[in-house]
Simulated scan of single mutants.
Amino acid sequence: MKKLLILFLILLLGGCATSPTGRSQLIFMPDAELNSMGLQAFETMKRDTRTSSNVASNQFVRCIVEAITREVGGQWEFVVFEDDSLNAFALPGGKIGVHTGLVSLVDNQDQLATVIGHEVGHVLARHSNERMSQQIGTQMGISLAQAIAAPQTALGKTAIGLLGVGAQYGVIMPFSRLHESEADRIGLDLMAKAGFDPAESVVLWQKMSQASQGPRPVEFLSTHPSHGTRIQDLQARLPAARQIQQQANAAGKVPRCMK
C-alpha cells in the first residue's frame, strides 16, 4: 500500500501540463506511446474499412487538411473512408480520417474545416493522453482507497463500487465534455488562421443537430456538449475568430477548396 501511495503521488505531482488554452492538465503517459497507439489504430482502420476512390472527394478533403495542418506543422496523413456516418477523427501521431457521410453533409470547405480543425485540436491539446492518464489515475485512486478501507461488509463494498461510478460521472465524463468544448475553441481559431470562415461553424453544427434528431442523453450524462451549448459557445467566440480570419486573408491565406 505504501508503494502504491508513493507511485500515486509521483504521478499526480509529475503529471502537470498546460493545454493550448491555458488549462491545467494531468498528463503522465509518454507521447511516443500514444503516437504508436494512434498509428496502430489508423492502420487497423485502413485494413478493415474501405477507403474512398472518389477523386473529387479526396481532393476536397486534401485541400482542407493541408490548409489546416500547415498552421500546426508536422507530418499528417489523411484518408477518406467509405462510411455513411457523420464523422471524422484525428489521432496522435498525425493521422486524420474523414467519413464520406460527413463529406456529403457539408455545403462548403468552411463547414468541413470546422470538423477537421476540431479534431486536430484534440491532438494539439493531447486529449487522448489526458483521458488515458485520468483513467489510470482514477483506477489507482480506487485501488488505494480499497487498500486503505479494506471493506468487509456488503455496505462497504457497495460504497467502493459507487466510488468508481462517481469517478466515471464526476471526473472522466465531465473532462470529456470539457475536451470537446476546448477542441471547438482550438479548432475555430485554427480554421480561422488558415483563412476559413469561422461563422460556418455555427451552420455546420446546426446541420449536425438537424441530421441527428432523435433521443439524446442529457448533457450531464453525455461525453459531448449538447448541440445548443456548442452553438452558443461558438457564437460567443466568433468575434475573435473573425479577426483572426481577417488577418489570415490579408496575409494571402484564402483557401479555395471546391467540393
Rank of each mutant, 00 (worst) to 15 (best):
A125F: 00
M132Y: 10
I136Q: 00
Q135T: 15
Q134N: 13
G73D: 09
E77F: 06
V98T: 07
F60W: 11
A32W: 12
H118C: 01
E130P: 13
S52E: 04
H122C: 03
L155R: 14
M37A: 15
S143V: 05
T44Y: 03
V72I: 14
F81G: 08
G93M: 05
A113R: 07
L163T: 11
Q146C: 09
A56L: 06
A56N: 08
H99A: 10
E71P: 09
F78I: 04
D31K: 11
V65G: 10
Q134M: 13
Q59L: 13
T153M: 06
N129Y: 08
L102E: 05
V65E: 12
T153C: 11
N108Y: 05
S85K: 01
G97R: 00
N108D: 12
I96Y: 09
S85R: 04
G74E: 11
I148R: 13
I64V: 10
L34N: 03
H118T: 03
D110I: 02
C63Q: 05
S133E: 01
H99T: 06
Q75Y: 13
E71C: 12
G166K: 07
L105G: 07
C63V: 10
A145D: 02
G117Q: 00
A67Y: 07
I68V: 14
H127Q: 05
N58D: 12
E71Y: 10
L86H: 01
Q111K: 11
P30W: 07
F60R: 09
V65N: 08
I142F: 10
G137P: 02
S57C: 02
F78L: 04
G38L: 07
E77A: 14
E82C: 04
V98R: 06
R131A: 13
R126L: 10
E33M: 13
I142S: 08
Q139F: 01
A145W: 06
V80D: 14
F81C: 08
L163P: 05
V65A: 15
R126C: 03
A154N: 12
Q75N: 15
L91I: 05
L144T: 07
L155E: 15
Q135S: 15
Q152H: 08
G156N: 11
Q152M: 06
Q146T: 11
S85T: 09
L39R: 14
F60K: 09
G101I: 02
G38R: 09
I148V: 15
F81L: 15
R50G: 05
H122F: 02
G164P: 05
S143R: 14
Q135K: 14
M140T: 05
P92R: 04
G166S: 08
I96V: 15
R131T: 07
D83T: 05
M140D: 00
R50I: 02
K46I: 02
V123H: 00
V103E: 02
P30V: 08
N54R: 08
M140S: 01
S128I: 05
L124Y: 08
F60G: 07
L155D: 15
R70D: 13
L102S: 03
A56F: 07
R131G: 08
F60S: 10
S143I: 04
E43C: 03
I64M: 09
A90R: 05
D110R: 09
A125G: 12
V165T: 12
T51Y: 03
T100P: 01
F60E: 10
D107C: 04
Q75D: 13
A154Y: 13
N35L: 02
Q134L: 15
F78C: 02
G93Y: 04
V123Y: 03
